[in-house]
């Protein structure tokens, strides 16, 4: 089932020339239950595409539909705290909070109704391979891989349909990278999420269901692999 649809999406920076688009005429539909990788050279617009999909930026032209609803017409804050989970290369966790508090804060922002938020946060941490002890540690006392798992748990805390990850394994060793990819695949295949990963890593690209290549020259997207 298509959950996210890009229709002639284009983007140019506000201070750029009129026809100087970073992305142009991107058309693609993302489905639930699949794990996607977006590849491309530096400057091809991977992160820009990700920020458009996640509602952090609005496209300069074209439309993005979530569940057939135009993102331009919905509350993007609500979209980000309910329908989409975002994971960054640098984790973007709040360092003055511990792992459990980071997850609970995310639940609070989304307004999700959970009976015992702390218990639920601990369960989410366990799902990504962490313990309660990890959860009670301050963020800066966790390793990079552990922090990334916390970020994944946080993005799952309000049960979104789409998970977007920007270079999620960029700061991690190969073993940890494989573990994280397995988590993403599990989310797509067993929990029916649409997982979109922006990556440079061939290892990641080999393990996902669909690889999309962003071409710097013609600023378009090309499907390169499908299982």
């Amino acid at each position: 089932m298509d959950i996210l649809k890009l229709e002639n999406v284009g983007y140019r920076y506000k201070d750029a020339n009129l026809n100087d688009y970073v992305l142009s005429d991107i058309n693609y539909s993302f489905s639930l239950g699949k794990c996607y990788a977006i590849k491309g050279k530096s400057g091809s617009g991977k992160s820009t595409l990700l920020s458009l999909i996640s509602g952090l930026e609005r496209p300069s032209k074209g439309k993005i539909y979530y569940n057939n609803k135009d993102l331009g017409k919905i509350d993007l804050d609500k979209f980000r705290n309910t329908n989409i989970g975002i994971i960054f290369q640098s984790f973007n966790l709040l360092p003055h909070l511990n792992a459990i508090e980071n997850i609970i804060l995310s639940m609070d922002i989304s307004g999700i109704k959970v009976k015992n938020k702390k218990e639920y946060a601990i369960k989410l941490l366990k799902d990504v391979g962490l313990t309660k002890d990890h959860g009670e540690r301050r963020i800066l006392r966790l390793s990079g891989g552990e922090q990334q798992r916390v970020a994944i748990a946080r993005s799952l805390s309000y049960n979104p349909d789409i998970i977007i990850a920007d270079e999620p394994t960029g700061n991690l060793d190969e073993e940890t990278e494989n573990e994280i990819i397995e988590i993403f695949k599990d989310l797509a295949h067993n929990q029916n999420k649409c997982v979109i990963i922006v990556t440079h890593s061939n290892n990641v690209a080999h393990k996902v269901d669909v690889v999309l290549e962003l071409e710097k020259e013609n600023k378009s997207i090309k499907k390169s692999k499908r299982i």
Binding site: L56, D77, K78, F79, R80, N81, T82, I86, F88, N92, L93, L94, H96, L105, S106, I109, S110, R154
Partner: peptide, 15 residues
């Protein structure tokens, strides 16, 4: 940075 994270995870500017 804290503002950026909070905004990214969907907290409204006013909040």
């Amino acid at each position: 940075y804290e503002i950026g994270v909070l905004r990214t995870i969907g907290m409204k500017k006013s909040l």
